[in-house]
Computed example of a mutant assay.
Amino acid sequence: MEILMGIAALLAALCLFSLFSFKAPNGSAAMSGLADAAIATFLVEAIHKYVMGNLFGIGYLAEFGNMVGGMGGIAAATLVMLRMGIQPVYAIVTGLAMANLGILEGFIVGYLFSFFVPLFKKYLPEGVDVIVGVLTLAPLARLLGIFISPALEMLMGTLANMITEATLLSPLAMGFMLGGLIKMVCTSPLSSMALTAMLGLTGLPMGIAAMACVGGSFTNGYIFHKLKLGKSSNTISVMLEPLTQAHIVTRNPVPIFMSNFIGGAFAGTIAAYFGIVNDAPGSAAPIPGLLASIAFNAPQTLFMATVAAAFAGLLGGVIGHQIYKRVLAERIPLQQFANG
């Protein structure tokens, strides 16, 4: 039951963010802003605090990474509003009001206030609109952020605890499911960094998510190469950062996502077997996932797990390619772009 609840919690979170991204007004732009915020804060924190600071003992970078990691709310509100076309001054003042609040609070406040800001320009004279706007937005944004914070923390904490408990009860089963699902998110227009950051995943679940993204890179590389999806530069790019090839992925979802689930599931199972842990939330991406994991695992263990995850991801690509080639190719032909 714990395992089923953990999987259900993850699927519920994925469905929620997918529906928002594709159905909400400007949902895709807002999710892109959220992904940018995760990169700007949690990626910097993961590398500088945990690797350069805690692992290599550079105190300045540890302090710097810790400081940046605490600015998720500021970054999310600012970048979401900028992605939605709001003037920078409004985005900045709303973002600053999110100091010491989480990335999800900043995301929600930034999204909602993006619909509120145009009213200042519509109903107030030029110049006055900016003064009244910034003086009004800041306290209102802060008030809303503080109001919704307890409920969001409880909700995200509950989801994270359910996933963590299920993973600890049955590491291999959850490694398979969690790894497969997270790698699909990693390759989709959604952001696995943002998802794992909002859930606050740490420990073994975050280790599984990170290594699934690392191993799944080889899945993407193989499937792009065998199906000739673009040029060699596209293949290299999708291995390093899948979101750079979203235009190809979204046109060919069946072979790519199917292969990604298989490769990510295999890599996640490998991570669970080796007991890979990662206490840097939001590092679920190929390069950050590997670098952040260095700080929390024995070098020999991480090396063996990484090599095994790479082979597992490659195997997932082979299996996915064969399934598509033998069963689905005639029914679901590939879609290409003239520029690759």
Rank of each mutant, 00 (worst) to 15 (best):
I3E: 11
L4K: 10
I7S: 13
A9L: 06
L14I: 15
C15G: 12
C15H: 08
L16T: 14
L16Y: 11
F17A: 04
F20C: 01
A24M: 14
A24I: 07
P25G: 08
S28F: 03
A35C: 02
A35L: 01
D36P: 02
A40M: 10
F42T: 03
F42Q: 05
I47V: 15
H48Y: 09
Y50G: 09
V51C: 03
N54H: 08
F56A: 11
G59Y: 05
Y60C: 06
L61Y: 10
L61M: 12
A62D: 08
A62F: 12
M67P: 00
M67S: 08
I74W: 08
I74D: 09
A75Y: 01
A77M: 03
R83P: 01
G85Q: 11
G85H: 11
T94V: 13
A99P: 05
N100I: 09
N100A: 12
G102D: 11
I103S: 03
F107C: 09
I108F: 13
V109G: 09
G110W: 02
F113D: 05
F116C: 13
K122V: 02
L124N: 07
L124G: 05
P125A: 13
V128N: 13
D129S: 15
V130T: 15
G133E: 11
L135P: 00
T136A: 12
T136S: 13
A138F: 14
P139K: 12
A141M: 08
R142Q: 06
R142P: 02
L144R: 04
G145Y: 07
F147L: 15
I148L: 12
L152G: 12
E153P: 00
L155K: 04
L159R: 00
I163Q: 05
I163Y: 10
L169F: 15
L172K: 06
A173F: 15
G175N: 09
G175V: 08
G179H: 12
L181W: 07
I182N: 03
M184P: 10
P189I: 08
L190Q: 06
L190H: 02
S191C: 15
S192K: 01
M193W: 07
T196K: 00
T196R: 01
A197Q: 12
T202H: 14
G203A: 06
G203D: 07
P205M: 08
I208K: 00
A212V: 11
F218R: 03
F218V: 12
G221E: 02
Y222F: 15
I223A: 10
K231R: 12
T235W: 04
V238G: 00
M239G: 00
L240Y: 07
P242L: 08
T244N: 14
A246I: 07
T250W: 03
T250P: 00
F261Y: 13
F261T: 00
A265P: 09
F266D: 05
A267N: 11
T269Q: 04
A271H: 02
A271P: 00
Y273F: 06
G275I: 13
V277C: 09
D279T: 07
G282Q: 09
S283H: 06
A284S: 14
I287S: 04
S293R: 04
S293C: 06
P299C: 02
F303I: 12
M304E: 09
T306W: 06
A308S: 12
A309P: 06
L314Y: 13
G320F: 01
G320I: 05
I323V: 15
A329N: 11
E330L: 14
R331G: 07
R331S: 13
I332P: 04
L334H: 10
Q335W: 10
F337A: 11
